[in-house]
């Protein structure tokens, strides 16, 4: 009864209502329907906005499983770790562990995270590796590792697996005192060796306790059996290693050889050129749905 009173201040009994009053009440009750519709649309818009905002953290979370090389035109910063162009590439960060998988092990390492950015221009790719290291030492070193070909390779230098036939790995190794990269191959312990064809360049720059090292190479090479081949749009397995070249009290290197900081396998992808075909498919689908509605309503109207 309370609700009827709200609509009809006159507080008339049911029996006393006239036809026009019924109409008026109907009109009055339609307004809430429109009102509710607006509310529904408004809250729908709010939900969509929340989803869009919510997806932003997801895209950040995504970065920590994959390095993405954005496609750029007009020159890559191939030998400049401090180039402004790097700020346009999204960094991906990966946790590092001491290498404990095989002897000689190490229990404690200096570098616990690395940050990686990448850019490509359709012909060459450049990576920027960044990590904190309190001291600059001649033996500071870092490496990228890639699976080569279709076979899976164990992240520890492609060591043999007992039930799965593995493939080789391609390792790009940079050392501060050498000032260049060494392009290497391995398939199992003790098989690591520099390749006959050196295709990788690297340059490091140290400042304020941070190493920035640029690695670069052509996307594809003429030696697909030993070099990783980078096809834009495809995900490739990538891993990282870092050696802090500090020495202990006895003057011995603390991190050397297998005693290093390592990551697990993550993914790398060079972005493919933009593909707008799905927008076109969506537009065609919208047009078809509109046409279907149009024909359906026309048929219904004619049928009556």
């Amino acid at each position: 009864m309370e609700r009827i009173n709200l609509h009809e201040p006159g507080n008339k009994g049911e029996e006393q209502r006239t036809g026009s009053e019924w109409c008026r009440e109907n009109e009055a009750s339609m307004k809430p329907v429109n009102h509710i519709m607006k509310q529904v649309l408004r809250s729908g818009a709010a939900v969509i906005t929340a989803m869009v905002i919510g997806s932003v953290p997801f895209s950040f979370a995504q970065e920590s499983v994959a390095v993405r090389a954005a496609l750029v035109t007009g020159g890559l910063p191939l030998d400049d770790p401090n180039a402004a162009a790097w700020s346009s590439a999204a960094p991906a960060s990966f946790p590092m562990s001491p290498q404990v998988h095989w002897p000689n092990r190490i229990q404690e390492v200096t570098v616990k995270d690395v940050s990686v950015r990448a850019l490509h221009d359709g012909k060459q790719v450049a990576f920027l590796l960044e990590y904190s290291d309190p001291t600059q030492d001649p033996d500071d070193a870092a490496a990228f590792e890639f699976m080569v070909g279709d076979k899976k390779a164990h992240f520890a230098h492609g060591q043999p697996m007992l039930q799965v036939e593995g493939g080789p790995v391609n390792i790009w190794f940079w050392k501060n005192k050498a000032g260049k990269a060494v392009d290497m191959s391995a398939k199992g312990f003790g098989t690591l060796k520099p390749q006959a064809h050196q295709d990788v360049n690297a340059k490091g720059a140290y400042s304020n306790g941070t190493w920035k090292v640029v690695f670069s190479r052509n996307l594809s090479t003429e030696h697909p059996e030993e070099d990783v081949q980078i096809t834009p749009g495809q995900f490739i397995s990538i891993a990282f290693a870092v050696w802090d070249g500090r020495k202990d009290a006895a003057g011995e290197l603390v991190e050397k050889g297998s005693q290093k900081s390592v990551s697990s396998w993550w993914y790398f992808r060079a972005d493919a050129p933009p593909d707008y075909s799905s927008y076109m498919y969506a537009a065609v689908a919208v047009a078809l749905a509109l046409g279907f509605q149009f024909v359906l309503i026309r048929k219904l109207k004619k049928g009556q």
């Binding site: 493919a272 537009a283 749905a289």
Partner: peptide, 25 residues
């Protein structure tokens, strides 16, 4: 609302099923 939302929903679904994924395998 229904007549506008239905085609948009169809378009959205089509986009979602044809757009290349940014997610690793």
């Amino acid at each position: 609302g229904v007549l506008i939302l239905f085609p948009l929903l169809v378009g959205w679904e089509t986009y979602g099923s044809t757009a290349s994924s940014d997610l690793p395998p």
